[in-house]
Every structure is written in C-alpha cells, then in structure tokens.
Nucleic acid binder design. Structure first.
Length: 301
DNA sequence: TGCCAGGCGGGGT
DNA sequence: ACCCCGCATGGC
C-alpha cells in the first residue's frame, strides 16, 4: 500500500520527556532510525515524527485524509505518553533494590491490542533475543507493508484474519513452535468478539496466563497495575534475598508494577537471567547500548 | 552438543 | 497450595 504525504503539525514536547529514548525502546528499524520515529496509526495512515528544539515535528501520510490534525495529535500524545507523569514512579524507584536510578524521561509507548498480544506471547518461555526474533520474522515474512511516499516502508504484523488464513504452519516457520496455537486462538477471538477489548479477548484463552495477560494489557492500555512477574524478575529479586517477589512488587511499586518490569528489562539490556544476576551483583544497572538490547534493536532488525 | 530461556497447563502430592 | 514435567525452537 502506498501512502501519500499530507499535512504536517507541531506538538509541544514536555521538558522532562526524552523523545529519543522513548522512540528507541523496543523499536524495529522501520520504526526508528536514530532520530525519526515512524508509526502506523491505521492500515492506511502513518506518521513520521522528528524532534526540533523541544517540539515534535509530525508529517502525516495516508491514502485519503480521513483523520483530522487534532485526532492525529491526540493519537501521538497517547502513544508516546506525553501527558504521563512519572514522578510517583521515580520516587518508588529510589526505594527499589535494582531500579534506583532509571533513565529519566523514558516512557513506554502504547501499542494496539493485537500487536501487544503478539509481543506478549512471543516472550513466553523465550529469551529477549528469541522472542523478538520470532516477531520480526512474522512481520517481515507475512506482514503488511505501507510505503511512505518519500520515506521508505513501514511493516506491520498480519491481521488476525490474514493470520488465520495463513495457518499454523506459517507461525511455526517463524519459530513459534507450540506458541502458534495460542496466537491463532487469540486471532480467532479478535474476530469472533469483533472488539479490541483485550480483557475480553484474552480472558479464558488456553495458553494465556497471568504473564501474557498482564504484559499485553500493560502495553495496550498502560495498565501498570498488573503484576508481570516471570522467572526472570522473580529470579532477579530472589538473588537479592527477596522471599516473596509478588508481595515485594505490591509494596514497592503499587500500581506501577508492570512499568517496573518493563523498565528492568531496559536497564539490564534484557540479558538472560544468569547474566542479569551477575550484572546486578556488580551494580551495573544502566543500559550499556552494547549489542542487541531493547534500546538498540532498531540497529539490528 | 545438551541445556537453558522474560510461560503455561495438567497432573501429581 | 504447592512441585514437576513436557512443550517447539533458537542460541550459545
């Protein structure tokens, strides 16, 4: 699909917001190139976002002008979290054993419920590298392509409908293994329920447990109150002597639990548990930007 | 090469 | 309520 260049707009950037960090995190190469963030808003609407002296400069692309400037601006504010206040989160960081000094101004970008579900299932029983590699292959091999008139292409995962048509073998070809069934079941639920209400969609799906549910809802709606505690987070804190990690998260993070998990993967470069424990012991709890990490994956994929 | 990796459900106790 | 196992696959 070919998208034509349309209007441009400016959005004021809050002083304590770090656009570059926010745009870097968990981005593929077609989303971020080191300075510019490119997002597909709908099947046929995209934006390119750059930063110039404390303003976001937005260029819109579409087939026909179907969204107003105001709607697009609202979308960007929402996805980037421009109005999100993290003061309480940072205050809590000061009390944590690992996240004492997180990168400031880094916000989690919202993604749509279908994409969020794919991300969450991809991470089941898999390392950061394996999970994101599977998703990368799914998008590149079977996804949709939107060509921006003057700025290359953006890729998106196949829709639930298309994925059902493609069938289980396509997912297995991307390395999904037994996770393929889970994704297909979620795809069917999206179609059957005819809704993007992720709670309803994921509720009761076999293969979707608390981790997948909580992560997907956090990524979709900033529902940070879900405890997203996997072997990795559990092992990290247990290595520091925490007995009940669930209770610890409740106490320290309150309604920020899922964001804390997300931020932990950032500051520890999402390295596997054994290495992450060593890093914490060495007190190395800042992103290194070396090799394949959540903040650098756009350089590789 | 065998074993682990950011889950999960089923079956045992 | 716990513990334990198998499950596909990729990477070291």
């Amino acid at each position: 699909m070919r998208l034509s260049k349309r209007e441009t707009l400016l959005i004021e950037l809050p002083e304590d917001f770090n656009f570059k960090l926010t745009a870097s995190a968990y981005s593929f190469s077609w989303m971020f190139d080191g300075s510019t963030l490119r997002l597909l808003i709908e099947r046929d609407v995209a934006v390119r976002i750059g930063e110039t002296d404390s303003k976001l400069q937005v260029t819109c692309y579409s087939r026909s002008s179907k969204l107003t400037k105001h709607e697009i601006a609202q979308y960007i504010v929402d996805v980037l979290g421009l109005e999100e206040r993290l003061d309480d989160f940072y205050n809590r960081c000061a009390r944590d054993l690992i996240l004492r000094d997180p990168p400031r101004g880094l916000h989690m970008r919202k993604c749509d419920p279908w994409y969020a579900s794919l991300v969450a299932v991809s991470q089941q029983n898999a390392s950061f590298r394996q999970g994101w590699s599977m998703l990368y292959r799914l998008i590149k091999n079977f996804g949709e392509t939107a060509h921006l008139e003057d700025d290359g292409a953006i890729y998106a995962p196949p829709s639930p409908e298309k994925l059902i048509r493609l069938g289980e073998q396509s997912l297995r070809a991307c390395g999904y293994g037994y996770r393929a069934r889970v994704i297909l079941e979620i795809a069917r639920r999206f179609l059957e329920l005819g809704t993007d209400d992720l709670h309803k969609v994921l509720q009761g799906v076999r293969g979707v447990g608390p981790y997948t549910f909580g992560l997907a809802c956090a990524l979709s709606y900033r529902e940070y109150y879900h405890p997203v505690i996997d072997r990795w987070v559990k092992g990290l804190y247990e290595s520091l002597g925490v007995r009940d990690v669930y209770r610890y998260f409740e106490d320290v993070w309150g309604s920020w639990k899922a964001l804390a998990t997300w931020m932990l993967t950032i500051v520890l470069d999402a390295v596997p548990l054994r290495k992450a424990i060593e890093r914490v012991k060495r007190g190395q709890t800042k992103p290194t930007m070396q090799g394949l990490t959540p903040l650098t994956m756009w350089m590789y994929w």
